[in-house]
Amino acid sequence: MLIVLLAVVFAAVELLPGDAASASAERGESAADLAERRHLLGLDRPVWERFIDWMTALPTGDLGTSARGQKVTELLADPLPNTLVLALSAFVITVVLSLLLGCSAAARPGRLTDRAISHTTTAAFAVPEFVISAALLLVLSLWTGWLPAVTVTGDDGGPATWTMLIMPVIALVIPQTGWNTRVVRGALADQASAPHVEAAHLDGLPLHRILISHQLPGAVPAIATGIATSTGLLFGGAVVVETLFNYPGIGNVLAAAVTARDTPLIAGVVICAGAVISLVLLAADLIRHATLGVRA
């Protein structure tokens, strides 16, 4: 799947107007200068040839050289950990909130709490990250001055203070919590009609005990799969959020690379994000199989 995705990336950049040579051209450069730069960058070779060369070097950890002559691995050495911190923080908070809200809604289906959570989470998922980010900047930075509007990079290459993480994390958490709460609620609703759950109701067990001890274990495979599949949306949202908050992550690197038509750098970002998403999906599959094995 990653190989197909990377092939699409190479082809898509090739179809964009211009190339890395023209994007980095200075005013007054001649056609001969551009042709020489294209030759140095290998842009005069077929795209499939460049793709095969890049893929051949990938198993050794070589992500190629950017259009500006720097190793892609060096360019991603600082931004990637910053993005992982941002994404992991948002992921953990999303999982906790989704479980709490989903369980609260499923505890009394059809009641006021269930309807309120359902409508709120639907609205939260429908609002794009850039709208949430703009609202957060307006309220928490411009109006109140509680939080810094942009991220300042410290000596270690990360945010200078932890408070600079708050708004980017919130901007990612809100839509993801909206989606995953509905996943949790739906998975618990599917378990509500299971024979062992109905038997627990007939035995007169408390609702919270039935929910936690009987419905939730059976819903874990569906919840794990749903949360894992939303990881791609989380990384996609991180690109927008990092750009708006000037966060020093791979989102900013990707935006600059697309502008510069820097194919190796774009592919490097994609392979890093794709590897993380694949690992999360693998973990979800392992959890699902382990849970189903225990139930069997």
Results as ranks from 00 to 15, higher is better:
282 L>M: 11
267 A>R: 04
276 V>K: 01
14 E>W: 14
144 T>Q: 14
30 S>F: 08
261 R>D: 01
106 A>F: 06
236 G>E: 11
255 A>C: 00
206 P>S: 10
37 R>N: 06
41 L>I: 00
204 G>R: 14
232 G>Q: 14
237 G>S: 11
88 L>C: 13
28 G>D: 14
104 S>K: 12
193 S>A: 12
34 L>G: 06
129 E>G: 01
177 T>G: 07
1 M>D: 10
230 S>A: 15
243 T>P: 10
218 G>L: 04
142 L>D: 11
166 I>K: 11
59 P>T: 06
277 I>L: 08
192 A>C: 01
124 A>N: 11
265 L>M: 07
201 H>S: 11
286 L>N: 00
212 I>Q: 00
121 T>F: 14
144 T>Y: 11
76 L>H: 04
109 P>Q: 15
143 W>E: 12
287 I>M: 02
76 L>E: 06
235 F>R: 03
183 V>A: 03
76 L>N: 06
63 L>W: 02
194 A>N: 09
271 I>H: 01
205 L>F: 13
120 T>E: 02
102 G>W: 03
82 N>Q: 15
42 G>V: 04
2 L>D: 03
37 R>W: 05
31 A>H: 08
83 T>F: 04
26 E>A: 12
132 I>A: 08
21 A>D: 04
163 T>V: 12
59 P>E: 09
16 L>K: 00
273 A>M: 11
186 G>D: 08
281 L>G: 13
161 T>D: 14
50 R>L: 03
263 T>R: 12
160 A>N: 05
278 S>Y: 02
105 A>C: 12
36 E>Q: 12
177 T>M: 13
196 H>M: 04
148 P>F: 03
37 R>E: 14
173 V>P: 07
274 G>T: 04
215 Q>T: 06
123 A>C: 05
135 A>N: 02
40 L>H: 04
89 S>Y: 12
22 S>L: 13
106 A>T: 09
91 F>H: 09
214 H>T: 00
17 P>N: 09
142 L>P: 00
130 F>D: 09
259 T>K: 05
250 I>Q: 02
187 A>C: 04
126 A>R: 09
190 D>V: 01
257 A>S: 13
97 L>T: 07
106 A>L: 07
227 I>H: 05
209 R>Y: 07
193 S>T: 11
23 A>W: 10
5 L>M: 14
138 L>W: 07
215 Q>H: 01
103 C>H: 04
138 L>R: 10
205 L>I: 13
92 V>I: 15
76 L>Q: 03
284 A>I: 00
34 L>D: 04
231 T>R: 05
266 I>S: 09
131 V>E: 07
255 A>R: 06
262 D>Y: 01
215 Q>G: 05
148 P>A: 01
130 F>H: 10
141 S>K: 07
217 P>L: 02
195 P>D: 11
288 R>P: 00
73 T>W: 02
194 A>I: 00
204 G>S: 09
193 S>N: 10
98 S>N: 11
36 E>L: 07
